[in-house]
Write a protein that binds this DNA or RNA. Structure first.
Lengths: 197, 197
DNA sequence: AACTAAGTGTACCGATCAGTAAGTATTGAT
DNA sequence: ATCAATACTTACTGATCGGTACACTTAGTT
C-alpha cells in the first residue's frame, strides 16, 4: 500500500489550516510548509476547496475516534462515560496546540448554507451529538431508562455545555472550561433524576 | 456634527464582514458595496485591520446595548432577567440575518494571541460575562445572596450554555438552541438553590 | 473670492491569489 | 532494461490582494 504523498499532504495541510485559518492560508504557503509541489497537490485535489474537504474528513475521523476511545478508556458505565466526556474535553484543551474546534472555525469562514464545507462541518457536529446521545440513552434513573424525548433534550443541553466550553476556552475567557462544563453537567444529570451521580 | 462617511462606512462594513467573513472580504468589495471611495476609506483608517477593529467596536456597543436593554424590558427581578437572557438570545437567533457571533468568527480568523483583533474579541466576551455576573449576584436563595464564588461559578456555567447555543444555532445543529439553553439554565438555577425559579 | 475639509475617480504599486503548462527526475513492478 | 506512475522544478496565467499617488469636485466658512 501507499503511505502516499496524498495522505501526507492532507495531514500537514490540517495543521496549517488549523493554526492559520483556511482563507488566510494560500496554496503557496502549503507548498512551503509541506515541501510538496503544487503540481502534485493539484493532481490529488482539483481545487483548494476539495483539499479543505479532505482535511475536514480526516479531522472528523481523527477527533471522533480519539475522543470516544478516550471516553471508553476512562469509564465503562454510561454515567461514568458521560462525565468522562468532559474530562476528555479538558484533556483536549490542555494539548499545547489546541486552537479551538476546526469545524466551528471552518463554518465561520464558509457560512453559505449550500457550501459543501459548511455542510461537512454541521455533519461532524451531528455525528458527535449522536455519539453522546447513544450514551445518554443507556443512563439509569430510579424508574429505568429515560424516555426518548427526555434523553434527546438532556443530550442537547449537555451538548450546549460542550460547545460553549470549546468556544470559551479558545477565546481564553475561561481557563478551565472543561471542568466547569462537567460541574454543570452533573447538575443537569441530577435534575433529570439520573442515579448515583 | 457630522453624521459622517466614517460612521456610514463602519456600519456597512459591519454587514459585509458579518455575512462574508473578514479575510474573504477585500477592500475593493467594500468599495463596491458601500459606494465609498477607497481613498476616503484609507483617510479614515490606516489599514484594513484598523477598520475591522472599528467594526468590532461598533458591534460590541450595538450588541451589548441591545441585548441588555431587551433583557430589562422583559423582566425586572434578577431571576426574571436571568431567564430573559435566554429569551433575548432566542430573539437574536430568529432575526433573519443572524449569522452567528461576530466575535467568535473574528477570533476564528485572527487567532494569534497578540493580535489586537483577537484581543478585542475576548474583551467583548468578558464584558458580556460581567453583565451576566452582575445579575447573578442579585439572585436570592433561601439563605440570602449567593457567595461570590458560587455566583461566579454559576455565571460561568450559564455562559457556557449561552455560547454553546450561539454556535449550535449558527451551525444549524439545533433549531431552538435558545430555548434549550433556557431549560438547562432553569435546572442550574434550581441546583444552586435559587428561589422561585 | 479665497481657502479649507472631505469627498471622488482612475490608475497604479508589488505581492499574492488559485490554478495550469511543459519538461524532467525518481521510483517500483515486470 | 523497460515502462508507467508519481512527483518534481520552473515558469506562467489573469485576477485579486492591501495600499498609494494624483488630480479633481464639492460644500461650508470667512
Amino acid at each position: 500500500m501507499r503511505p502516499s504523498k496524498r495522505d501526507e499532504l492532507v495531514q500537514e495541510a490540517l495543521k496549517v489550516f488549523y493554526q492559520n485559518g483556511f482563507t488566510a492560508t494560500g496554496m503557496d504557503m502549503l507548498v512551503k510548509k509541506t515541501g510538496i509541489s503544487k503540481t502534485s497537490m493539484y493532481k490529488h485535489f482539483r481545487t483548494k476547496d476539495d483539499l479543505i474537504l479532505a482535511v475536514l474528513r480526516l479531522r472528523d475521523e481523527q477527533l471522533r475516534n480519539w475522543f470516544f476511545r478516550r471516553v471508553e478508556e476512562l469509564a465503562s458505565s454510561p454515567l461514568g462515560q458521560l462525565l468522562a466526556v468532559f474530562d476528555v474535553l479538558e484533556e483536549w484543551f490542555q494539548q499545547p496546540d489546541f486552537q479551538g474546534c476546526m469545524f466551528i472555525k471552518a463554518s465561520s469562514e464558509f457560512q453559505c448554507v449550500d457550501d459543501p464545507i459548511y455542510n461537512q462541518c454541521t455533519e461532524h457536529k451531528k455525528l458527535m451529538f449522536n455519539s453522546v446521545l447513544k450514551i445518554v440513552r443507556e443512563l439509569e434513573t430510579d424508574s429505568g431508562k429515560l424516555s426518548p424525548e427526555i434523553a434527546e433534550k438532556l443530550t442537547r443541553q449537555l451538548f450546549l455545555l460542550k460547545e460553549g466550553a470549546i468556544v470559551l476556552k479558545h477565546m481564553r475567557v475561561s481557563g478551565s472550561a472543561g471542568l466547569e462544563a462537567k460541574e454543570a453537567a452533573v447538575s443537569l444529570l441530577q435534575a433529570n433524576g439520573i442515579r448515583n451521580v
